[in-house]
Amino acid sequence: MELSIWRGEWGLGSVSIECLEALVYSKIVQAVQKIHVRKYVFSSDMSPWLWVSSSGKSVVGASSIISYLKSENLDADCNLTQKERADILAYKNMIKYKIAPALKYAMWCDERNYCEVIRPTFAKIYTFPSNYSMPGRLQRAALLEAWGRFGECATPNEMETKLNRKARECMTALSERLGKSSYFFGSKPTSFDAYVFAYLSLIVKTPLPNASLNGHLNTFSNLVEFESRIHNRFVASEVRRRAAGRTRPEWVGVVLSLSFAASVMFSYAIVKGILHIDFKTE
């Protein structure tokens, strides 16, 4: 089985929450032989793909991938009781409606964060010509979502404070639930750990100038430790492998662009007749 994900930045396994979740889960159950980082990205769809070579089938989306892997007997949750499964549903829901909106807001709607970090990074990730249009479109979608929730008159400050307060409530609950143990449910990692990790990892590792959400998370040391534990165990090797595999050092790009500029100026000079080249035959 092969997993195709969005590439990572800032030491993340992937910039997409869903890809990160699928990556960690597949590492937990040791299902995937090969991980591809998508080279050409055009659409706003950030979901991971799983390519099952044996049956020639592809599965899209983190939750579909996880349920597919579970059906293939690669189930990290098999030791859970019904009550624990119920708890997982409740906690997942709380993360989805309390942490996710705050994270989305911090990344896409906060003007400074978007301009200084998010837009440049996503412009690099997207393939030409989507790199010009897609980041703006994603921001628009995030803003519409925030306005839909708070009304268009709400000021950015109010929205942020309110979302962060909700996120903090959720972090408090998660921190209490985790306590001193290594994983949320039992002594082995489960799908819920992958789910929580994806969000926490993005909050911890994205170097946002306005890092209020990260500041909130940092007050819960067990959650931060949990993030680095999962990262080191399942994701770090992947990040290292990719960093080593980077081709084309930076100076090549500089030389290429310099020579491009020089040749353009040169040909302009020739066409305009500023520069004459005479080939004299005697």
Binding site: D87, Y91, N93, T172, A173, S175, E176, R177
Partner: peptide, 15 residues
């Protein structure tokens, strides 16, 4: 811990 679970279920039911 119960408070944490309570918050999670409260959010679940609400949303």
């Amino acid at each position: 811990a119960e408070n944490a679970d309570h918050a999670a279920y409260f959010s679940l039911v609400q949303t």
